[in-house]
Design a protein around this nucleic acid. Structure first.
Lengths: 325, 325
DNA sequence: CTGAAAGCGCTTACAG
DNA sequence: CTGAAAGCGCTTACAG
């Protein structure tokens, strides 16, 4: 099959290539009748623009990129990516994915030089993140998921943690803990602060935060070895919550009687265990879509305002309940 | 920052653009000394080829594509994708991802017309799969994960099921069951047949197969309501195994005493529950890499032989044990 | 071994 | 409203 070009259309319609281009792109300066004729021929020939030719002359890649740290086996990412795609896919903007072994900066450089993407989405923003500065220098449009110096969309940590801690307080918990991802992440920093604030506001007796890295199960085990031990555990991700359930089972600690467990995303994983996981729901698909939408604005030339996505809401299931003593 | 082009290099090195192009691409017909001089200038200027310009003249997109069904929230996919990327990323071949709402065919058409990708990887091959025929017609190079009329890399269902059933037989199980994905998938069909073969070979008293769709938990519940009920359950995916554990807990069925559960991929999820999941390990990252490698051959002009990936191996943990009666 | 030229399929000023 | 022409940054025959 040979792919038709605007040259074929022009010849067939008896006009110049430029006229075809104008007509196809909805530019003014073509009479309604010729436009219609051209569109008809294009349709008849099954013409579709060559993305590379268009990119070369318009200096637009027609694609956006996402660089992932190699280790990221996080199932949550898939839903985020699906969210990005729900915005760009229908617009025929390609989504380029690259896993980078501690060389994310090199990928951005490479993409910029190769003119591969028009912009990028940045996940897992760190408190001190060299990617932010580089993207600024390169002038590569970017939107970060999590607050940064670049345009961003972030989660409402305050509401999320107030919701979680409030739920536990109402159930009667007084000693609570939270397990989060790396403390270097902006996400973790914000949620930890919000968790401690909420715990203070609700006069918790104790509220401690630990990191799940490098070993979440070990962290939970340490947490549950404390005396008196916390009666509730707020988990950053659903996978961590699943792991906490496993550790509790291993130690013979009953959920929710002796330990309440709260999950952090509410993916389908929450429904798998028994008891099913209560979660503070963050719709990662929509969150991804919101970020993609922001990048789209940026690429269109607007300076989009920083947005807060949310608010999260509580989905009550079996893994939380009043503490029994 | 302005990006340097071969024109800049040519001027600076005092040669023609074509000479620069030849030198940069390692083509013969350039003296060693000029080549070195040109490479030096290119380096000095920080030149990188424009992927779109190169694509336009070479008629190569420099990218491969993957279309995913919209519903695919399967965490396993992320590792497969990482495997693809481990082959293409280092070669600066982009990986284009698109989620399609029951219109995967349209995406292939669109990509072909737009010359967006040089080839595609196809996952979740169905027994009767219209994508295979379309890709053939378009002449879009493709490799399928799972046997098809196109070049493919597939899993060793026989060994996997012999390993799983053999393990259970050795433990003393006589009534076993298997839960798999949609029966329309080649993967499911092959594994179901292999499971039944292995069960016959090991003289199992009963061996039944059910589908996890649309509701895996419900399917497991039905399976466990049978009298006499199976004493072991072989699960296609880790998520299903996690779900099976949850259902068992809900019904008060002890694992592994009253029910052994085998997982199907051995992702990190297997380590979360207690007891941890015994699994027939399939390294999805390597599987993805093998498929990507095959596509690379295909794009290089070879006709790669169909490959079987594997063999899978057993990773024994706590979720399987002798049946107690 | 090297250079001038055409071409990939579009877009976009610039003249008519 | 329409057309002829240059240009995007490369590759690749084709002459010297």
């Amino acid at each position: 099959m040979r792919r038709p070009t605007i040259h074929d259309i022009a010849r067939r319609a008896g006009v110049a290539k430029s006229t075809v281009s104008f007509a196809l792109n909805g530019q003014p300066g073509v009479s309604e009748s010729t436009r219609r004729r051209i569109l008809g021929v294009a349709d008849e020939l099954g013409w579709r623009p060559s993305s590379v030719a268009r990119s070369l002359s318009s200096a637009q890649a027609g694609a956006v990129g996402l660089v992932l740290a190699c280790e990221t086996a996080d199932p949550a990412l898939m839903r985020l990516v699906a969210g990005f795609e729900s915005v760009f896919g229908p617009r025929e903007v390609g989504l380029l994915l690259q896993f980078a072994p501690r060389t994310e900066l090199a990928v951005y450089h490479s993409w910029w030089h190769q003119r591969r993407v028009d912009g990028v989405l940045v996940v897992d923003v760190r408190v001190s993140d060299p990617r932010i500065a580089l993207l600024g220098e390169l002038g590569l449009p970017a939107v970060t998921l999590g607050r940064s110096a670049l345009p961003s969309v972030s989660l409402d940590a305050e509401t999320a943690m107030r919701t979680a801690v409030g739920h536990l307080a109402r159930l009667g918990h007084r000693r609570i803990a939270r397990i989060g991802r790396s403390p270097e992440l902006v996400h973790t920093a914000e949620h930890t602060a919000a968790f401690l604030d909420a715990a203070r506001a609700m006069a918790m007796e104790s509220a401690v935060c630990v990191t799940a890295e490098p070993d979440a199960a070990e962290a939970v085990r340490r947490l549950l070895a404390a005396r008196p031990r916390p009666t509730a555990l707020v988990c950053d991700t659903d996978v961590m919550a699943l792991g906490a359930l496993g550790v509790a089972a291993q130690l013979g600690i009953r959920v929710p009687g002796e330990l309440s467990v709260l999950a952090g995303e509410d993916s389908p994983l929450c429904l798998l265990p028994h008891p099913a996981l209560t979660a503070v729901r963050v719709d990662l698909h929509s969150y991804g879509a919101a970020a993609a939408e922001t990048l789209r604005c940026l690429l269109a030339g607007d300076r989009p305002p920083d947005r807060t996505f949310g608010p999260p809401c509580l989905v009550e299931r079996g893994s939380t309940g009043p503490p029994v003593s």
